[in-house]
Design a protein around this nucleic acid. Structure first.
Length: 541
RNA sequence: GCCCCUAUAGCUCAGCGGUAGAGCUACGGACUUUUAAUCCGCAGGUCGCAGGUUCGAUCCCUGCUGGGGGCACCA
């Protein structure tokens, strides 16, 4: 599909002179042109792009006609009102009424209904709101009406100036006194009443946005969510920073990085997998409440919940811990839900509606459960950080849970997922993880073998994770050294010893709580959509 | 990385071992109140690409490429 399109496009751009000659010479005689085509195989572009050629010819005519309609791509048109504004002001005009007011509006032609002496068109604004325009022989004259019918196609941007009226059937309309092409569409508008197939939706998102209300809504929800997060942070005196995406060392998470090369430094560079190590430097420097919303890149599998590039929120707050940062996280998400609901019937509530119609309540206090506690309860036996690997392995075998490279921590996590995770429907903070699975995290202040970490589970996936941050530079160095040893053994996800970061930490980082949250996943939580729908332009091959 | 499904007109989709069909779009015509306007007429396709089987392949087989889903890994 794609290669053929590319070939065709190349043909078009290579032969502009030929085509305009041809189309100008034969505009009144499609049949003779067609027979010329068959005898001239080098111009076979027409066979593939008949509709485009027709429109290219109209573009030429518009440009040659000069003031007939101002050319195909005027630098400006005298718009005096937006389609939504006209609707808001005159939406309740009674059928057949005339407002006496003249406006100039522009929009994309999405439907046409032309009769002999009266043409109707439907113009669509960027937000999807529509208004009818009428072009009547009595108002614009014979020449203008004929030009309208010949030159205006579905998909064109059209400017119309005229009186705001309501048609006999009560449709709010602009009765044109003047009209002008605002931008000629050369490519035909897709069918407006059948959704594009999924691939086209993603590859040509602009068509999806023109065509599908849900696509437009997703973009708005995402923007509002981002604005809401920033507002909540601002309300708590956080400041936003941007840290490097190109890094000489990758770190801050266990993940395989993308590798690139700097010509200037003649060195290997990594696209960041997490901003953590830079944000912590910022905290050392005195940015006591700091956050970043930006892209991370992970060279791993892609599916309905994972994209190679994804937007991530990370924040750090001094003089709080993983409990304090859980409070903040809940507030951030609940405010985002409020923002997503603005203008809907659920305005003012934390209950969001997913694309499939499911209502999901994000309100109230979210439960904080202990990983070991809930696992013990569900398994019907006491499981603690002291439970032996043997005993855990027996339980796993009995339950049919397979664990790759089992150790205490992995067994506990896998068993917890098996016994508890699927039962979680409400947003839930799962607290206190086994130390083996979180080597970069601070040990629990009172429970040995456990770290002060939580995962926030929503819809069965991890939406966010929070920590009481490890700030001891000596312990941090030990952990890096262990990681580097793993790397030497071939673990592609292991990070190296980041001396620059350690130097910062040696200057003292205050006790802090830290949190990371996937933005695309937050949008999935608020909309119920897959990750490819929440990202405007997902990576496609 | 493994398994399954899928690719047909500008768009959305049928279809079948005997070289393709619908709706909308496009093109020609009629129509001064339409709402996906309607009516009449008429075009448009290397059936993803490359091989193979066959008298004959869009259809069956193999490989490749793109897309979707599942498993594994990860946020």
């Amino acid at each position: 599909m794609k290669p053929r399109r590319m070939v065709g496009y190349a043909k078009i751009t290579e032969e502009p002179a030929l085509m305009s000659e041809q189309t100008a010479a034969s505009s009144a005689n499609a049949e003779s042109r067609a027979s010329e085509e068959t005898s001239a195989p080098e111009t076979s572009a027409e066979e593939i792009f008949e509709q485009k050629l027709v429109r290219l010819e109209k573009r030429d005519r518009l440009n040659e006609a000069g003031d007939l309609a101002g050319g195909a791509y005027p630098v400006a048109v005298p718009v005096t009102a937006t389609i939504p504004a006209v609707r808001a002001k005159w939406g309740h005009l009674e059928a057949g009424a005339e407002s006496g007011e003249t406006v100039g509006i522009a929009g994309r032609v999405v439907f046409q209904r032309n009769t002999g002496k009266l043409c109707f068109g439907t113009l669509q604004a960027g937000n999807g709101e529509r208004i009818q325009v009428m072009v009547s022989l009595a108002e614009v004259g014979e020449e203008s009406l004929a030009a309208y019918k010949e030159l205006v196609d579905l998909g064109d941007h059209l400017f119309v100036s005229g009186e705001v009226i309501s048609s006999r059937r009560g449709e709010l309309s602009i009765m044109a006194r003047e009209w002008q092409i605002a931008a000629k569409a050369i490519a035909p508008l897709p069918n407006m009443y059948a959704d594009l197939n999924e691939e086209t939706r993603v590859r040509q998102r602009y068509l999806d946005l023109i065509q599908r209300e849900q696509a437009r809504r997703n973009v708005v929800t995402r923007a509002r969510t981002m604005a809401s997060l920033r507002q909540t942070f601002a309300d708590h005196d956080f400041i936003e920073v941007e840290t490097p995406m190109l890094q000489t060392m990758h770190g801050g998470a266990s993940a395989r990085p993308f590798v690139t090369h700097s010509n200037a430094f003649d060195t290997e560079l990594f696209l960041r997998i997490a901003p953590e190590l830079y944000l912590k430097r910022a905290v050392v420097g005195g940015l006591e409440r700091v956050f970043e919303i930006n892209r991370n890149f992970r060279n791993e599998g892609a599916d309905s919940t994972h994209s190679p590039e994804f937007a991530m929120l990370e924040s750090y707050q001094t003089y709080t811990d993983y409990n304090g940062i859980a409070d903040l996280t809940q507030e951030l998400i609940q405010n985002a839900a409020l923002a997503a609901n603005v203008g809907t019937e659920r305005e003012g509530t934390h209950t969001v509606e997913w694309a499939d119609g499911t209502l999901f309540d994000l309100g109230g206090e979210w439960e904080r459960i202990s990983m070991y506690g809930t696992l013990s309860e569900a398994a019907g036996r006491e499981i603690t950080p002291g439970t032996s690997v043997d005993e855990l392995q027996k339980l796993a075998d009995a339950e049919g849970v397979e664990v790759h490279l089992p150790n205490h921590g992995k067994l506990v996590e896998e068993l917890w997922e098996h016994f508890v995770k699927d039962g979680l429907t409400r947003p839930t903070f799962v607290m206190d993880f086994p130390v083996e699975t979180s080597p970069l995290t601070r040990h629990h202040r009172s429970i040995p073998g456990v770290v002060e970490k939580w995962d926030l589970y929503v819809r069965g996936f991890e939406l966010a994770t929070g920590y009481s941050e490890l700030v001891d530079p000596v312990v941090q160095r030990e952990r890096f050294v262990e990681q580097a040893a793993q790397g030497a053994k071939g673990d592609v996800e292991a990070m190296g010893v980041d001396e620059e970061f350690l130097r910062a930490l040696e200057h003292g980082m205050p006790p802090s709580g830290g949190m990371g949250m996937g933005m695309d996943r937050l949008l999935m939580t608020l909309t119920g959509l897959g990750i490819r729908e929440t990202i405007l332009f997902p990576l496609v091959k």
